[in-house]
Amino acid sequence: MASMNGAIIQVNNVKKSYYRASIEIPVLRNISLAVPDGEFLALMGPSGSGKTTLLNLVAGIDRPDAGEVNVGGINIAALGESELAQWRSRHVGFIFQFYNLLPVLTAYENVELPLLLTKLPKKEKKEHVEFAMNLVGLSDRKENRPSQLSGGQQQRVAIARAIVTDPTIIVADEPTGDLDKISAAEVMMLLNRLNTEFKKTIVMVTHDQRAAEKAHKVLHLDKGDLEPEVRS
């Protein structure tokens, strides 16, 4: 498949079902997808269509029933549990709809969290954290806890946490889903900047048409099948 060369993410014939009371619920039927390095991809589709499921497979927090998921040349579905965890900590930055910050930690400590798993010297850790907090424009809110920040600010802290390890790809599941218009626009601008300025590959699930417009490419997931969006 020469056309897929240069793709940083390659999903080949992936199938995924969930089971509820031993009844199979097929979510992804036979999905293939290639995301070139530096892409900013938006996944759209109705609720329950399997967007989060697909994103989770790409990010290595779940495994396909069949098929392959290659990221940066590694078939992550073949990795063992702890190898996969290590792989995630190095290669994936996560942004969630509800930010998922630790409420007991300050903004600074939340951003620092992924670095606990690295062997970086203290000084470098500090530089990384400060760079990331600076980038999201929250250098003055380091000592605040999540509860003392607005939703938009919390999501920016989460973005700083996602980039602090300089990951290969960034996955975002409805990053603006819980935000007002202005905060959502700020978050999208940030993601756009990460993509254009820092050349990060981003896969983003969204329901938000405005958010999707910032992406280079929009794919639609419906009833377990993937279709490119027809842009008007």
């Binding site: 702890s82 792989w87 630790l102 798993l117």
Partner: peptide
């Protein structure tokens, strides 16, 4: 539960 799932997502191990 959600926080520990998030920590696992970030790559924290069972030992952590």
């Amino acid at each position: 539960t959600q926080e520990y799932a998030m920590l696992k997502t970030l790559g924290f191990s069972g030992q952590n």
